[in-house]
Design a binder for these strands. Sequence first.
RNA 1: GCUGCUGUAGCUCAGCUGGUAGAGCACCUCAUUGGUAAUGAGGAGGUCUCGGGUUCAAGUCCCGACAGCAGCUCCA
Length: 746
Amino acid sequence: MLTLKLPDGSVRQVAEGTRPRDVAAAIGKRLAQAAVAAKVNDKVVDLDSELPAGNGETSFQILTDKDKEALAVLRHSCAHIMARAVMRLFPGVQLAFGPALENGFYYDIDAPTPIREDDFPRIEEEMRKIVAEAEPFERFERSVDEARELVRDLGQGYKVEHIDDDLKRYPSLSFYRQGEFIDLCRGPHIPHAGKVGAIKLLSIAGAYWKNDSSRRQLQRLYGTAFFNQKDLDAYLNQLEEAKKRDHRVLGKQLKLFTISPDMVGSGLILWMPKGAIVRGILEAFIKDELLKRGYQPVYTPHIGRLTMYETSGHYPYYKKSQFARTPANPFQPDVHGHRDFLRQFIAVRNQLPEHQARVEEAALEQDQKFTHEVVPEIEEVDPRFPGVEYRKGDLQKKHDILSAWLDVQEPETYLIKPMNCPHHIQIYKAEPHSYRDLPVRLAEFGTVYRYEKTGELSGMTRVRGFTQDDAHLFVTAEQIEAEIGSNIDLVLFVLSSLGLNDYRVRVGLRDPNSDKYVGKPENWQKAEQTLIEVVKSRGMNYSAEEGEAAFYGPKIDFVVRDCIGREWQLGTVQLDYNLPERFNLEYIGKDNAAHRPVMIHRAPFGSMERFMGILIEHFAGAFPLWLAPEQARIMPVSERFRDYGEKVENELKANGFRVHGDYRPEKIGYKIREAQLEKIPYMLVVGDKEQSAGTVSVRDRVDGDLGAMQLVELIQRLGEEVNERRIRQVSTASAGLSDRDAQFGD
RNA sequence: GCUGCUGUAGCUCAGCUGGUAGAGCACCUCAUUGGUAAUGAGGAGGUCUCGGGUUCAAGUCCCGACAGCAGCUCCA
């Protein structure tokens, strides 16, 4: 016998091997009808699964359409239904993965003729047919060998590969059959298709097989499903609402920023006057905090020598995503590509004699181009280049000549800076340091440029030029924990000052299988351990994720979601043992010997651009008073009160408020509507009554008409609201849509 | 970078199967001088993203580039 503990606390004895379906039926007919799946010991299972043998109490719950977990099961089943419909309509389709998501589901498929959005209606129609037939989902198991044979017979090559790559180790594999459709799948599923109330296909996109960009690209069909039409409509409506707070839409509407792809370039933000005010206030806000916390502001240039970035490791690790190098002499021919090739040539020739012939052939071909195109160019701009000798030399000699010349040229090449740290390191290095000086905290709003791929760009949240509220701390080993800790506090302070409470903390660790990181494994281990200890000791919720580290060290990131559910890293605190080593940083310790400091890289906002983008969405463009570009607008009821309006305007300006007067000959309703749409916190109406009483009528953006107020009273009210950085508009950071983490995998 | 979709006035969009561009808002002018989310009338504004091609004729069809959107990959 098995003892089940139900959600209401009651206990029920059943025989081993009983199915949740039977338990539901025993409890009540209506529950049995409503049942979608069951939760046994916190694991969601099919209604038809056999309850496991167990000693002691087994927690047991029937899931119905009221439960969130049931919705995930439903959606996973809908992925199957969609795949079945697609296979009926598009013969020869191969299936890959089809999991449920937080807000829907997808299935990756490989179709001989690509599926297009125009095909959605007929796929949906076919799906509805399947739903109407309400056939059951039937589970069965096979050994690995039998399973492989089965998927092969079904013509599902990706499934075969998946079994061979990842599933071989299991004793048996489960399948689900629904009518003619059989799919390798872990489950669980709804009892039959009739449970589906509403479905909609949403979009189609490319996705790589097993998330590997070197593998075949498949088509990913996104859809969503609900138990009823009403929920689907509500969800679609929610999507529409979320789009309205998109910072790209609001940024345009409220004239906060613009982008000029054709003239300035895509991914480069132009801050318009209103956006610039908000940014300026944010910068002043954080700068003030930094000074209180012992930071020293510095300024550094936008470019630096290539040599520096080679030392730091930024180049060549990330050269693909950097803006082009700039030769100090603009006429210098671009021979670096050839340099790389020749160096490679030498390296390969020394190591792999069997490749010699092929490599030499390629080098000779390259030589033709060099002799006839590049060399004349070089000669023209650089009389020091021994062109004659080059021409008559053999390949080895030519290479020597070119290398020697390149070595002279190289230091004259500059890079537009992708990071601020190497510059700050040079400031640290400009003077000797005693242990007494540490921590040295150098801060700068440093603008960096990174050539992100076109498909990555997005409004203000992913750009090619951005300003980090950056700082680098040079600390002793003993100071690490305290400094990391106080930086976490700073990030938390910044986020809470702005009411950004909907974030998660990610500890980014190195991926041990990747070679993109610099530095010794011991240092990495030490750094990773320290970070985890600090977040643990603060009792913070965090997730440690491999492969999320910076190339020089692990980091703690504060991640938020935008209005359509995408995650973005804002604040970050990074620990780095590597750059100090690469740049030979030192301080003199108590023992009068040189020691190596440790670096902390940190940015509470992350970047001004991304932070602003998220902030726009967070407030839906309605900034709190302390940040609002225009805090109040004076609107006379008619032109006759312009003089009084200007008096009010000047008085408020004299008190440091950002106000404007709307003196156009328009009706008051018109002016109010406009100000409301511009999300101006306060509207100050002045007319006959106000003029004679020396008051203003205050209309609040949130609460509406507040009635008349003495000017001094208003000034005090606004002053308090600004000083307390009060946030008076309830708003959630994001609608929390479309988390694309898989919950169930096939 | 990849897959799919899109690109018409400052903004949001219409323009059916090819026949020399249209609305609303914004803008400008005039009238109106008003009391808490749109006063009325008039005017100006477009090389239909760019470059090729098909055609008697291209905003419309085809090809390419660029850009935007969604997703994937990437993200120092």
